[in-house]
Amino acid sequence: KYSDMIVAAIQAEKNRAGSSRQSIQKYIKSHYKVGENADSQIKLSIKRLVTTGVLKQTKGVGASGSFRLA
C-alpha cells in the first residue's frame, strides 16, 4: 500500500523539516517494486494522508513541498 510506503520513507529519512515528494519517490522506487504509475499514485496518496491528518505539510502547497508525520 502506497500510504504505508510513504510513512516508511518519511520515518527512514528522519529529517526535522520533513521529506520532499521527490525524496519520498526516490526511497519508494529503491526499496519497493512499484509499477510505472508510481509517481502519480504517490502524489495522490500524499494528498490523502494530509487530508486525513496522518501527514503534516511543512512547506509548499498540494503534493509539492515537504511533509512529516503528524
Rank of each mutant, 00 (worst) to 15 (best):
K26R: 11
V61T: 09
K59T: 08
A12R: 04
T51A: 14
T51E: 15
L44F: 07
L49E: 00
A17F: 14
G35I: 04
L49V: 01
F67M: 03
A17P: 04
S40G: 06
G53S: 02
V54H: 04
I28T: 01
I6E: 00
Y2C: 15
S23H: 05
V54R: 04
S30P: 00
Q25F: 12
K56M: 13
G18M: 04
Y2L: 08
R48N: 12
L44M: 11
S64C: 14
R16P: 15
K1Q: 09
Q11W: 09
V50H: 02
V61D: 13
L55Q: 00
S3W: 06
D4H: 12
N15C: 12
L55F: 00
S64H: 13
I6K: 15
G60Q: 07
I42W: 03
N15V: 05
S45V: 14
K26P: 00
A9E: 02
T52F: 08
S30M: 10
H31V: 06
S23K: 05
S19P: 04
K47P: 04
G53I: 04
K1C: 15
I28K: 01
V7P: 01
T51N: 12
I10H: 01
S20F: 03
S30L: 09
D4L: 10
V61K: 12
K26Q: 12
V50T: 04
M5L: 06
R16C: 15
I46P: 02
R21L: 15
R68A: 12
T51Q: 15
N15Q: 06
E13W: 05
K47F: 10
D39N: 10
R16G: 13
L55E: 00
I10D: 01
R16K: 13
V50K: 01
A12K: 04
E13K: 07
K33R: 10
E13G: 10
S3E: 15
S3Y: 12
S23G: 05
A38N: 03
R21K: 08
S30R: 07
Y32F: 13
R48H: 13
K29N: 06
K56E: 12
F67S: 02
K33D: 13
L55N: 00
N15K: 11
R48A: 11
A12D: 05
S30F: 07
S19R: 06
K26M: 09
K47T: 08
L44H: 08
A17V: 08
S30N: 08
E13S: 11
D39R: 05
K47W: 15
S19Y: 02
K1W: 10
Q11A: 10
T51S: 12
G53Q: 03
D4P: 06
A70G: 06
Y27K: 01
G18V: 03
E13D: 12
Q22R: 08
E13L: 15
Y32E: 02
L44I: 11
L49F: 02
G35L: 15
T52R: 11
Q57L: 11
K43F: 14
V7T: 04
Y27Q: 01
I10A: 02
Q25I: 15
S45C: 15
G65K: 13
A17G: 13
D4Y: 11
L69P: 03
R68V: 14
K43P: 03
R21W: 15
G35V: 04
S66Q: 10
I24N: 00
G65Y: 15
Y32Q: 01
H31K: 04
G65A: 15
A9Q: 01
R68H: 11
D39P: 05
Y32G: 02
V7E: 02
I24Y: 01
S66G: 12
V50S: 03
V50E: 03
A9L: 10
R16E: 13
S19Q: 03
S45K: 05
N15M: 05
L69V: 06
G65E: 14
Q22K: 09
H31T: 05
Y32W: 07
G53A: 03
T51G: 08
I24G: 00
K43D: 15
E13Q: 10
V7L: 12
G60E: 05
V34A: 05
K33S: 11
S66K: 14
V50W: 03
A38V: 09
K47E: 14
F67K: 02
Y32V: 01
K56N: 07
T58I: 13
S64V: 09
E36P: 14
A9D: 01
E13A: 09
K33W: 06
A17R: 11
K26F: 09
I28N: 02
I28P: 01
H31Y: 05
I46A: 01
I6V: 09
G53Y: 02
T52A: 14
V50G: 02
S23Q: 11
I46D: 01
Q57T: 07
K1R: 12
I6S: 02
L69W: 03
Y27H: 04
L55S: 01
G62Y: 06
A38E: 06
A8V: 04
A12H: 08
G53P: 01
S20P: 03
F67Y: 14
N15W: 05
S3Q: 10
A70L: 07
A70Q: 07
M5V: 02
Q41F: 09
F67A: 02
S40T: 12
V50L: 10
K14L: 06
A9Y: 03
D39C: 14
L69G: 02
S64W: 09
L69S: 02
L49D: 01
Y32H: 03
S30T: 10
K47L: 11
A12E: 04
D39L: 07
V34G: 01
A70P: 04
Q22S: 12
G62S: 06
T52Y: 08
A70D: 05
I42C: 03
A38C: 13
I46M: 05
A38G: 04
S64K: 11
S19F: 02
Q11H: 11
T58P: 04
I10N: 01
K59G: 13
V7R: 04
V54A: 04
Q11K: 13
F67L: 07
V61C: 13
E36H: 13
G18Q: 02
G18Y: 04
I42F: 04
G35A: 07
G62N: 07
L55T: 06
T51F: 13
G60K: 08
